[in-house]
Amino acid sequence: MTFFEGIGMHAGYGASMILNGCSISVDKGQIAVIVGPNGAGKSTAMKALFGMLPLREGSVFSDGRDITQLRPEQRVLLGMGYVPQTNNVFPSMTVLENLEMGGFVRRDDLSQTISEIFDLFPILKTKQNQAAGELSGGQRQQVAVARAMMTKPNILMLDEPTAGVSPIVMDELFDRIIDIANTGVAILMVEQNAKQALQIADIGYVLVQGENKFKGAGTALLNNPEVRQAFLGG
């Protein structure tokens, strides 16, 4: 059994079903990437995995434990971190305060974790007293990731962390994400920049209409002509 997995997930909003039995899994130290067309249900899958949307069928396991019924806050306590696609920082609060809020559930001293995070994202250290809403898009995404890291999660879920950032910043962000994975964190990531993301992925998922269309090692998907044709633009 893998470290973190959602099996046969069915979920939707109101009457409309978005997820129709998709399964996602990722192990410690691995990077799993979900790609797929707009509206395929990628964000919905992330929300379902994090408990923000009730599953109608299927279940979610973490470290062998069934967590299907847990609320998001409880999953945070279990060591899950989640970076939403949009509105993923506290805009009027400073970078430092964003980090503090990320570690809100922790009762111990945060300074050690904060300095580790500043080592990982040096730019944030120089901007620590600036409001997150005033940062550039790339910096804001770093704040968002950093906020989720504050609980020292062993599963980190990122919904399009590179949305709206320049290619250079994107490469840098991917480097950071690899760094994080190397510390033994399981990373689950949704990406629009499918080629680049699949290059660093241990496992890739192609999601279409709420179902796994393809699954495989990142490079294998990149080389799969069918996937290339339909989802990677040739």
Binding site: V76, P84, E97, F104
Partner: peptide, 17 residues
Amino acid sequence: KSMRAFSDNEDLALLSG
């Protein structure tokens, strides 16, 4: 600060516990 966070972004505040 948690009050300000809640005011800023209710959903993210929930996610932060």
